[in-house]
Design a protein around this nucleic acid. Structure first.
Lengths: 139, 139
DNA sequence: GTCGCTTTTAACCGAGAGTTTCACGCGGCG
DNA sequence: CGCCGCGTGAAACTCTCGGTTAAAAGCGAC
């Protein structure tokens, strides 16, 4: 069970946009891609999916680019993952009739756990966790 | 993020062996495969991995087969998944230096959540959850 | 209007992992 | 010794992921 790079890329992009959320100005895909080590041509696809799920907005033309559709505090890690991947923690077991129901309940239980964990983590918190760390250095 | 069928198969196999744990007699892989809807030839490979992780034992020769290496109460869902897949919830983000540390901490957090969920679920509990359900019918 | 900059969309492709099957060697029980 | 079922490696097959290409279209400036 491994997380796709796509989800990681998406999260990086949103986190990066979160850092620039204050100024309310759009950022170009290319800039974002280079800054975060993401192939820009690939990043485009991801951003489009994020846009269709109302997580980011876009403006066209010169001085165009992307920006968050809502404040970082209202975007959770779960939102982003679900946007690019379907349901977090999918499994063929969920639909396979051969899978015993007891086991399916088990899978659902860990599924719920990962969902709760991902949904209780906003990008605002991620930002603050970084400044939290900087404070540590002052001690 | 999706669970491989392999993990599902492994869990089904262990659950099935758990049901027959009492009699302490070995069960053939063919029987198990057919009963659980798992390609027997594939199941063999899975069982070998489970055996190398001390989750099941095997006996050879006629009347040979597989049985649990320890009671169902001492086998967790996490044990089984880790046996056939490496670490549960792996991600390239964990090692990629381009991934911001704040985000990496986020990933680790959900990783911990899924690990705890999987480790706190023993096959004994899964078995009991099924009889639990039968009791529901008596109401 | 049109030129240059950007996003948007769809189609495409290579690589690699996951799944499944095959063939054959080996080990123990009767 | 002979049978039966585990043990193991490798071949074939499928499918998704990661990434690229190219064309279409919106927006602003001149």
């Amino acid at each position: 069970m491994k997380l796709s790079v796509k989800s990681d890329y998406a999260a990086r992009a949103v986190l990066w946009l979160s850092r620039h959320y204050q100024d309310g100005t759009a950022r170009k895909v290319e800039e974002m891609g280079i800054a975060q080590g993401i192939p820009p041509k690939y990043l485009v696809q991801i951003l489009i999916e994020l846009k269709s799920k109302q997580i980011v907005k876009s403006v066209r033309g010169k001085e165009g680019g992307y920006l968050l559709a809502r404040p970082p505090a209202e975007i959770t890690l779960g939102d982003v993952i679900r946007a690019v991947e379907g349901e977090i923690f999918d499994s063929s077991a969920m639909t396979d009739p051969h899978c015993p129901t007891e086991l399916r309940d088990g899978w659902r239980r860990v599924q719920r756990a990962v969902n709760e964990a991902a949904d209780s983590l906003t990008f605002q918190q991620l930002l603050e966790s970084s400044v939290e760390k900087e404070k540590m250095y002052y001690i």
